Simulated scan of single mutants.
Amino acid sequence: MKLRALLVATAAISALSASAAFAAEPESCKEPHFADVGWTDNTAQNGLLKNVLDGLGYKAKIDNLALPLILEALKAKQLDFFLDNWMPSNAANVQPYLDEKSIDSLEPNLMGAGYGPVVPDYVAAAGVKDIKDLGANKDKFDGKFYGIEPGNDGNKIIQAKIDDANSGMAGFELVESSEQGMLSQAEKAIAAQEWVAFLGWAPHPVMGRMKLVYLTGFEKDGFGDAKINALTRPGYVADCPNMGKLLTNLKFDLAQESAVMDDITKGEEGQAAAAKWLKANPGVLDAWLAGVTTVDGGDGLAAVKKSLGL
């Protein structure tokens, strides 16, 4: 009887300890604050996560910010995390923060991505396959290379090549705009069979439908095969262990992101597009929510499924 009483008491103490540990989590952890950089893949990621957070009882806040501002906000602890750090292209921007330990980097949440300068297949067939081929055909491109928003890592790589007289891109103008603006220009040029060079990446449903060829000669600059990982403010995973567990569990794939992105590019709001995908593919929640509770310590998986009407 004494042994049984001891076991019961031990179990009760363990349960109380676990409950106390969860309750001791800072109040700020219940309102995760993260960023959307304006890329469709990031909007898809954020939409998927926001559906999960709503089901768990978190009150998430998402700010639309340019990449340099995101990094500074993470350092200043004005943001909790950012899901869409593309590597190795963003290495030069992120590394100083990692070196001074003012930003933490998590394990990749997406593998097998691609990023770099592209041309339409008919331009490649005409002989433009490498960076060195751009300069000789500058007039056919109207001297322009189309990038995305100012401050983007890819734009910085292209501008450095333009500034390098030996690169083959000397004399080009980098045209910076939004992702949507760049794609609109590219689609217009391709429809007219004009020559155009721009930044391309996968996953992306619109670019996935285009017949594009990645240019070689940029591999040492950070373009090529890519992986994506989350960045957090320093110490966030330890400060907010339940959110930290969710971010650690969160893994995406190319087909998943492309499907959500496709609906977004057709005009659907990001969270609605993500909810539709989750309802059609609920099995992904098992891995994402393993060991994750609701904000008040309840069954996380059951709560999210209920929230989504599953």
Results as ranks from 00 to 15, higher is better:
residue 200 G to D: 03
residue 205 P to Q: 06
residue 210 M to S: 08
residue 221 D to A: 14
residue 193 Q to N: 15
residue 205 P to R: 03
residue 204 H to W: 04
residue 195 W to S: 10
residue 190 I to Q: 04
residue 219 E to H: 11
residue 208 G to Q: 02
residue 197 A to E: 09
residue 202 A to F: 05
residue 219 E to Y: 11
residue 205 P to G: 10
residue 215 L to W: 01
residue 198 F to C: 03
residue 204 H to Y: 10
residue 221 D to L: 15
residue 195 W to P: 05
residue 205 P to E: 03
residue 193 Q to P: 06
residue 193 Q to A: 15
residue 192 A to V: 06
residue 218 F to H: 10
residue 205 P to D: 08
residue 200 G to Q: 02
residue 221 D to W: 12
residue 222 G to R: 07
residue 216 T to G: 15
residue 220 K to E: 15
residue 194 E to P: 04
residue 206 V to W: 00
residue 206 V to F: 00
residue 190 I to C: 05
residue 218 F to E: 07
residue 197 A to S: 14
residue 207 M to W: 06
residue 205 P to I: 03
residue 203 P to D: 07
residue 204 H to N: 14
residue 189 A to I: 04
residue 216 T to H: 15
residue 203 P to R: 01
residue 199 L to S: 08
residue 199 L to F: 04
residue 200 G to M: 01
residue 220 K to P: 09
residue 221 D to R: 12
residue 205 P to W: 07
residue 189 A to V: 09
residue 219 E to A: 13
residue 191 A to K: 15
residue 214 Y to L: 12
residue 200 G to W: 01
residue 191 A to P: 04
residue 190 I to H: 04
residue 222 G to W: 03
residue 202 A to P: 06
residue 203 P to Q: 06
residue 209 R to I: 00
residue 203 P to L: 03
residue 222 G to M: 15
residue 196 V to H: 03
residue 191 A to C: 12
residue 196 V to Q: 02
residue 200 G to P: 02
residue 201 W to Q: 04
residue 204 H to L: 05
residue 196 V to D: 00
residue 209 R to E: 10
residue 213 V to A: 08
residue 204 H to A: 00
residue 200 G to N: 01
residue 207 M to Q: 15
residue 221 D to T: 11
residue 197 A to H: 05
residue 214 Y to M: 11
residue 217 G to F: 08
residue 189 A to Y: 05
residue 202 A to L: 12
residue 201 W to I: 01
residue 199 L to I: 15
residue 189 A to C: 13
residue 219 E to K: 12
residue 203 P to I: 05
residue 208 G to P: 02
residue 192 A to P: 06
residue 191 A to R: 12
residue 203 P to Y: 01
residue 221 D to Y: 13
residue 193 Q to D: 14
residue 199 L to N: 08
residue 207 M to A: 11
residue 213 V to R: 11
residue 211 K to F: 09
residue 217 G to R: 03
residue 220 K to I: 10
residue 207 M to D: 03
residue 222 G to Q: 12
residue 191 A to G: 10
residue 211 K to L: 04
residue 220 K to R: 14
residue 192 A to G: 11
residue 207 M to T: 07
residue 210 M to F: 05
residue 198 F to E: 01
residue 190 I to R: 02
residue 196 V to K: 02
residue 222 G to K: 06
residue 198 F to D: 00
residue 195 W to T: 03
residue 198 F to L: 10
residue 195 W to G: 05
residue 204 H to G: 05
residue 190 I to L: 08
residue 208 G to W: 00
residue 190 I to K: 02
residue 197 A to Q: 10
residue 198 F to K: 00
residue 193 Q to T: 13
residue 193 Q to H: 13
residue 207 M to C: 04
residue 202 A to Y: 03
residue 208 G to I: 01
residue 218 F to G: 03
residue 201 W to G: 03
residue 199 L to C: 06
residue 189 A to K: 09
residue 204 H to T: 01
residue 222 G to D: 14
residue 194 E to C: 08
residue 211 K to S: 13
residue 198 F to S: 09
residue 190 I to M: 12
residue 213 V to S: 09
residue 197 A to C: 14
residue 191 A to Q: 14
residue 190 I to V: 13
residue 222 G to S: 11
residue 219 E to M: 13
residue 206 V to E: 00
residue 222 G to V: 08
residue 195 W to K: 05
residue 205 P to F: 11
residue 192 A to R: 14
residue 221 D to M: 15
residue 192 A to S: 15
residue 218 F to C: 10
residue 200 G to C: 04
residue 212 L to M: 13
residue 201 W to E: 00
residue 208 G to L: 03
residue 189 A to G: 11
residue 217 G to W: 05
residue 189 A to W: 01
residue 206 V to R: 00
residue 194 E to R: 09
residue 207 M to G: 02
residue 208 G to C: 02
